[in-house]
Design a protein around this nucleic acid. Sequence first.
DNA 1: TATGAATGAGTCTTCATTCAT
DNA 2: AATGAATGAAGACTCATTCAT
Lengths: 201, 201, 201, 201
Amino acid sequence: MSNDWRDFGPDPLSPPLRAALGVFVRHGYHGASIRTIAEAAGLSVPGLYHHHRSKQAILAAVVDAAMQEMLDHTRAADAAAEGDSPVGRFENIVEALARFHMARRDHAFVASTEMRSMEPATRAHHVRQRDEQQRMIEDAIRAAVATGDFSCPHPEDAARAVSSLCVSIASWYRPGGPLSPDEIVERHLVFARGIAGATTA
Amino acid sequence: MSNDWRDFGPDPLSPPLRAALGVFVRHGYHGASIRTIAEAAGLSVPGLYHHHRSKQAILAAVVDAAMQEMLDHTRAADAAAEGDSPVGRFENIVEALARFHMARRDHAFVASTEMRSMEPATRAHHVRQRDEQQRMIEDAIRAAVATGDFSCPHPEDAARAVSSLCVSIASWYRPGGPLSPDEIVERHLVFARGIAGATTA
Amino acid sequence: MSNDWRDFGPDPLSPPLRAALGVFVRHGYHGASIRTIAEAAGLSVPGLYHHHRSKQAILAAVVDAAMQEMLDHTRAADAAAEGDSPVGRFENIVEALARFHMARRDHAFVASTEMRSMEPATRAHHVRQRDEQQRMIEDAIRAAVATGDFSCPHPEDAARAVSSLCVSIASWYRPGGPLSPDEIVERHLVFARGIAGATTA
Amino acid sequence: MSNDWRDFGPDPLSPPLRAALGVFVRHGYHGASIRTIAEAAGLSVPGLYHHHRSKQAILAAVVDAAMQEMLDHTRAADAAAEGDSPVGRFENIVEALARFHMARRDHAFVASTEMRSMEPATRAHHVRQRDEQQRMIEDAIRAAVATGDFSCPHPEDAARAVSSLCVSIASWYRPGGPLSPDEIVERHLVFARGIAGATTA
DNA sequence: TATGAATGAGTCTTCATTCAT
DNA sequence: AATGAATGAAGACTCATTCAT
């Protein structure tokens, strides 16, 4: 993982979970019936229950897998900039985030959209993961401010704004669209630097 | 409306629609039962149906009211900057958007979150309204680029980013939170100028 | 009435009852909603209730009007054959029955079809009217048997068969169809004579 | 089937369908609630839905089973008269029809009564089956006219009258009534020959 | 391991009917 | 005489889940 944080391999979700994800994306958690999910997975209903305890457990598994993968990649991106300037760390993290929201657009969409459908424990776990990710951005901004590379009076707000911006990619990006992932990354790096108050071109 | 685009009066939604909005926010469209909505509205179920043809019609009414109010205020904010520099237009529009997403946080949240729950006609209408709003931002950016106030190679992407940023306010802002609306507006104006590549302080 | 038992004037049903009849025919009693009936009548729902106590009362009124008109015409047809041979009585009654089931096809259809939807009292009344009508046929047959014009070992069964035959006209006859009412009458007179065992052409 | 067209074994309907049939007979299709049907079948509501897709599908299954059985028996009765005079064919068909409307009185009643409650496709199928049956009678009559056994100027109308007569048995016959099925058959053969204009005793 | 059958509780929606105005 | 607003009960149907096989 240390070097390939830019690459997302095939979806690691098990077939039933991937099927569930598709249904969640199209209909939302409450609009998705166990029957529809089972059909999409090519399983009978009890067959699906053999793999997962409940519909809620399916949601938790999908969301946790997504958040783990996101954290893995952003952490690796951060680590890969070890020794670089804080700006390099910031840019790596943003790039990892942006790439994740394209490569795993459905996963990210469901994770951000279905918070209210999660049971308290699941939701708390999810929020913790999201906060950790956001703090990584914030830390990088603070470091860059310390070196004078960024001029940013409110690093926490800027981090949230950058994060929101990357998350929102998942709601409009379509593979095969007019812009390539590389172009989208490039442009969002510019936006993110603008939000963080980069002082140099 | 010409001068008071910054102010949002009391929620114009009828009591049943306001009640429905609250349930939609907490549980999502599919998670909201007509029974729950009726209870929240202090009506019997058929009493609710007396006012609205279907659950879907309730969603459409709520979303359309929200989008109309958003468009009214952003248009007025744009018009109020008539004669100003393009930057003034841009800032007015962004401020109107930000204020809307705080004053009508629930409305905006449901409108942006429940697109997949809308029937095709409703969704198409909604998308048209959203696109018009986004084009207002884009036009202002292009004008500011023409005057040299902004340096922005991709105005359409920047407009989407600015719009996404304002929309995302609705998902974390709480009245009575640590920041006042005025502070939030101020900070988001800075973020938005950063995204659009403002060349001057 | 004494002479014009062959003619059926305009439908004597009040407009709301006529509207209800149409809905009953198309959807059946249970499939007909008060709202649909009110709409068909051009009335509001309470407006309809102003004229009739309940949906059941509407059915009773429609059915009773139909049966009364049927009895009026068959009695008059019978009376008009006073002094004729029993065969003349028989034929007059059958003709009246056949003509009624064409002229008031919807009324007759509902009356015969919705017996199970009538409350006990209404149903009992209806059955009494139907039995009286059937006995008129039976009496005529018996009289014709006594004169040797008919050869019929079971007049009661024959009367029921003749009655059923006339009732069934209502379920296929359409005004403007290939056969004129006069032709249909003529042919059913032949069938009825066949059922009753007429011994002469 | 070749020899036993006179006998109707135990009702071939599955228990849930038989239960539904009973409820349809008593209350009509629209008056029959799925709850009542399920109770009559000794099932829960979803248990009933496990076996049948919808209330309409239940009606279609019941009606089609009835019409199939009717066609099977009348065809067999017709075939059994192979080589006989046309009058023999005619009598066999009528007897099969009459017996069917006694042995399967509820099935026949619902099939003829609930045409308006069938969805278009189901209704079309039903009408086709009914027409085929009626044409069998018509053909037999025409053949008997050709041999001079019947004198009947309008075979199509006579066939419809004979058919209606047999169908109407289902609306008054009760097992254990004053007349045995054999007696009823005998009398209806006489009526049918009368309608068709039989020239010989 | 996998599934046909089952279910209590819930879904959205409509029912016939009433009443204040 | 007419209606907008309301409702308890019921409509057909589906839910997530279980269990015997």
